[in-house]
Amino acid sequence: MTVAKTVARKVVLRFPHRLVDKPIIYRLVKDYDLQFNILKASVTPEEEGLLILELSGSKKSYDDAVRYLTGVGVELQPLVKDVFRNEERCTHCGACVTICPVDAFVVNPKTRVVDFHETKCIACALCINACPVRAMEVRL
C-alpha cells in the first residue's frame, strides 16, 4: 500500500476583481480535498482580493488545485521565508508603502523616513520587485 504524499504550503493568492465573490475556496475544499488555514485576507470591494493561505493535502490535489487557480485567473505565489530590508540600499522613497498588504512600511510624518516593521511582515514578497532600488530582499 502506498501512502499519498502530503504537502503543506503557504501561498499568496491574488484575485482579480471579477473573482472576488466567486466560491473559489469552497472548491478547493470540495473538489480538491485540501485543508486550509487563512493567515490573512483582504478584500476591498473596489480592489483586487488578497488571500494568504496555508493549504495542505495530497501533493497531487495540491498541484491540481494550483492548476485550477491559475486557470481561472488567480495569481498564485508561494510565501517566502523571510523578507528583510537592505538598509544601505533603501532610499526611503516610500514606493512600498501602498504595496504592502499589512502596512509594514510606515512613513514618519515628520522626518519622512520610511520605517519597516519586520514583525508585521507576512513575507508575501509583493514589495521585492515593487521597490525601485530593490532594497527588499528574501533571506534564504
Binding site: T91, H92, C93, G94, A95, C96, V97, T98, I99, T111, R112, V113, V114, P132
Partner: peptide, 11 residues
C-alpha cells in the same frame, strides 16, 4: 486613495 512617493523626501 492612499498615496506613495517615488522621490525620497528625507534624502
Amino acid at each position: 486613495v492612499p498615496t506613495a512617493s517615488l522621490s525620497s523626501y528625507s534624502r
